[in-house]
Nucleic acid binder design. Structure first.
Lengths: 201, 201
DNA sequence: CGATTGTTTGAGGCCAGTCAAAGTTAGTGG
DNA sequence: CCACTAACTTTGACTGGCCTCAAACAATCG
């Protein structure tokens, strides 16, 4: 498939901004991206973190304009995949269409899991769930699931999980005191996966 | 398009259950449907309410199995739309494919709005937002936006909004005391739309 | 290095949850 | 059609987890 190689993106640079015309979806090649919306009263809501190998930008399809903004949390590279090309191709290759439907559907189930998390779980359970998610996604990338670097700030974590920065910080503190995690700034080492899974559940 | 006319569904009957093979999406013809997931620790999370004219069942596409269950909150009728037919047709009619992409994308943005609501808003704001949403959806159906019947129980509202039944009940009470709403059981009359919008934001 | 931004820690308050019980509605079968 | 029961809703008192406010601390970057 013909896709554009991305030029490297510096930290805090936008891939696209809310309101721009929807033309493409994107694949992360390196670095990490966060998606967020700005609600009508001006506050930010982080809607997702995107790691290498993952696709983002499908939110814009409904209205031909992106509803999220997407920016690089660190230096990153992305592939742009023009949607028009994708449409043409998916008519020629039905399996591609199916694959793309699945991607969107996956996005829906992800969002619904986050809804459940926000709706039903405590601060500790939310943070544990995010850590486990990142751990699993690192495993899929052939990286360590026990030692890894969080690309996002505490503020982003809190925003994503519906918590304040202070609460996130305190939860990390408690997790360390319980010898479940070793936290050094953004470097995480999971010491007790069973305990983490029990919380994340 | 060839679709199956649904036989009427009694209250509390499932349209489909989580885990079943994904074969179709559905359109509500009359009555109302709720979607919900059951998390691994067994508790229910309501993920959506579906009113006449709306499509549901797209969550199953990713894994070829539904991740939600869908059941009738009152006597209802639904149209089954077999997905295989939809795929064949959308290859012949590209505009249909686009339309369907848009539906899924719309679902994503809806879910993300709910995420923001759960993450950032108070109990009163959440309830106000739901009421306004139902009001607007009734308007689109040529029904009154000011007087309508809530098809779901207080428990369902609470579950959907991440609140307890008691809190939902108290919020309705406060809304009445402020002369914003008139609540008679499930019958709602909006007395002050400005106030409602101010809360829902 | 200073300045800015991000993180941690503490004290106190409040919103929503929990527990409990009464009141109301709906559904069932005699 | 009514009596009985189960399910739903409301109300109250109390609790607690997370937020708010505040300040010290650490890290990053020009």
């Amino acid at each position: 498939m013909k896709i554009q190689r991305g030029r490297p993106l510096h930290k805090d640079r936008h891939v696209y901004s809310a309101g721009e015309e929807f033309k493409s979806v994107f694949a992360v090649r390196s670095g990490s991206i966060k998606s967020y919306t700005v609600s009508n009263d001006g506050q930010e809501q982080v809607t997702g973190f995107h790691l290498p190998g993952e696709i983002f930008g499908m939110d814009g399809m409904a209205h031909n304009h992106y509803t999220n903004s997407a920016l690089a949390m660190e230096t990153a590279a992305v592939c742009e995949i023009p949607f028009s090309k994708l449409q043409d191709l998916s008519i020629a290759i039905p399996s591609l269409q199916r694959h793309f439907f699945q991607l969107m559907s996956k996005e829906i189930t992800n969002d619904q899991q986050l809804i459940t998390l926000l709706s039903k779980n405590s601060a500790e359970e939310r943070v544990a769930t995010l850590l486990l998610s990142i751990s699993n996604r690192n495993l899929r990338r052939q990286l360590s699931g026990t030692r890894f670097r969080l690309p996002m700030s505490r503020a982003d974590i809190g925003n994503y999980l519906g918590l304040t920065v202070e609460t996130v910080s305190r939860v990390f503190g408690r997790f360390q005191k319980q010898d479940m995690l070793k936290v050094d700034k953004k470097e995480i080492e999971v010491l007790d996966f069973d305990k983490l899974r029990a919380l994340a559940n």
